[in-house]
Design a protein around this nucleic acid. Structure first.
Lengths: 137, 137
DNA sequence: AGCGATTTGTTCGTATGTATA
DNA sequence: TTATACATACGAACAAATCGC
């Protein structure tokens, strides 16, 4: 139930699993503030370092967003449906830190690299984009 | 050139920038072993904590892969071109830690979620996949 | 087969800085 | 201004896996 420091799985991953489950089960809803790091320290008797690692895992998964004021469950937000046409190719990767800053993206969000038949490329934040294959570009 | 602890940018991000530049410039090639954490500690006179944070940044960007034996520059590898047809929709996100383990993926690699017109979904590791829009699925 | 050295993984502690309420 | 909460950075210790001898 709680966290077992003697378990095989590291404490911070156990906590990440626990919080992730609470998010997926709707116990923590999008936009909602998570308890402070110190709350988790007190609740489970673990170090702040372990709590911060757990938060870093969840940020890396794009599940939470941490500002200076605390962490919140990320809102799925409104994704724009982008139509792409025949001959277009597409891939996804993580942005580098400078790219991420440039695009004003949160952590844990991939970018879509869309290459048109003419060779032109677009970078789109994946959390705001749904690709739909259409007849016409 | 080196790392300036008094700079605005955090030490670990400075180191990440430095190593990333070496990778992008080909000074560190795909498959090549990076210096050990202790080497960077000695080279720049920074803490191991900062070095590990820098490595975590680069792992999160999918640029390096760290095993117990050390970190290596990730090989671009062969991506399979997957054709998708009209009516298919697509999005990308980071896998959760359990998903990542399940799919046997390295850190810092997004997954492509492809939904066919019939509602069937496929999960594909983004580093092995290039999407190509074709007439026929 | 063993055994030590290397290297990363985890976890604690402490301290200081910075932004927000 | 004070209190809260996260960000960065140092140090220390031990565990676990791997490699070379």
């Amino acid at each position: 139930m709680a966290i077992d420091p003697s378990a095989d799985r590291p404490v911070y991953k156990q906590l990440a699993d626990l919080i992730r489950a609470r998010i997926e089960q709707g116990e923590l809803r999008p936009g909602q503030r998570l308890p402070a790091e110190s709350d988790y320290v007190a609740e489970f008797g673990i170090s702040r370092d372990s709590v911060r690692r757990a938060m870093a895992v969840l940020r890396g998964e794009g599940l939470i967003d941490t500002q200076l004021r605390g962490s919140r469950v990320r809102d799925a937000g409104e994704a724009v449906t982008v139509p792409i046409a025949h001959g277009t190719s597409l891939m996804a990767r993580m942005p580098t830190e400078p790219e991420r800053k440039e695009l004003g993206m949160a952590e844990g969000i991939p970018i879509l690299v869309i290459t048109s038949p003419d060779g032109e490329t677009r970078l789109l934040p994946a959390d705001q984009t749904i690709i739909e294959v259409s007849d016409q570009g």
